[in-house]
Computed example of a mutant assay.
Amino acid sequence: MKRSKQNPATDRAVYSEFGGAEANPLSRPDPPTSEQKLTVQASRKGRKGKTVTVVSGFQISAAKLTELAKKLKSQCGSGGTVKEQTIEIQGDHSQKLAEALKKLGYPVKVSGG
Rank of each mutant, 00 (worst) to 15 (best):
L104G: 05
E17G: 14
E67K: 14
K50W: 03
A63Q: 08
A23Y: 05
V108N: 03
G46R: 08
Q59N: 08
Q6R: 12
G20K: 11
G77N: 06
I89Y: 08
T39R: 09
Y15F: 13
E35V: 07
K96L: 09
A9K: 12
D30V: 05
P31D: 08
A62P: 03
S34Y: 06
V108H: 00
G105S: 03
E99T: 13
S74R: 14
T66G: 05
V40L: 01
E67W: 04
S61A: 08
G20L: 04
Q75C: 02
T81C: 05
T53K: 05
P31R: 13
Q90M: 09
H93G: 04
S4L: 14
S43N: 15
L38G: 03
V40D: 01
N7W: 04
S27T: 12
R28D: 00
A62Q: 11
E99Q: 15
G19K: 13
K37F: 09
S111F: 04
S94V: 04
D92E: 13
S43W: 06
T86A: 10
M1T: 12
F18M: 10
S78R: 13
K45G: 05
A23F: 09
K103Q: 15
A23K: 09
L72N: 06
R3I: 03
K102T: 12
V52W: 07
R47H: 10
G77V: 05
G57S: 06
R47V: 07
D92Q: 10
A100W: 01
V108I: 03
T53Y: 03
R47N: 11
Q36Y: 05
I89F: 10
K73D: 01
E99P: 00
G49N: 00
I87V: 12
K37W: 03
S94E: 08
P8L: 07
A42N: 11
E22R: 13
L97K: 10
R12V: 15
A23T: 15
I89H: 10
D92C: 00
P25L: 07
V40H: 03
E88V: 06
A98W: 01
E88D: 11
T66S: 11
K50D: 00
I87A: 05
G77K: 10
L97V: 04
K48C: 03
Q85D: 06
E88H: 14
G112T: 09
G105H: 05
V110S: 01
K71Y: 08
P29Q: 10
K37H: 15
Q95N: 14
V108R: 03
K70E: 06
L26I: 00
D11V: 06
G19R: 14
K102V: 05
K64P: 00
S74E: 15
G112W: 14
A62E: 12
I87F: 01
Q59S: 11
K73C: 06
D30G: 03
A98Q: 11
K2L: 15
P8W: 10
T51N: 04
I87H: 07
G77E: 02
H93V: 02
V40Q: 00
R28L: 01
A13H: 12
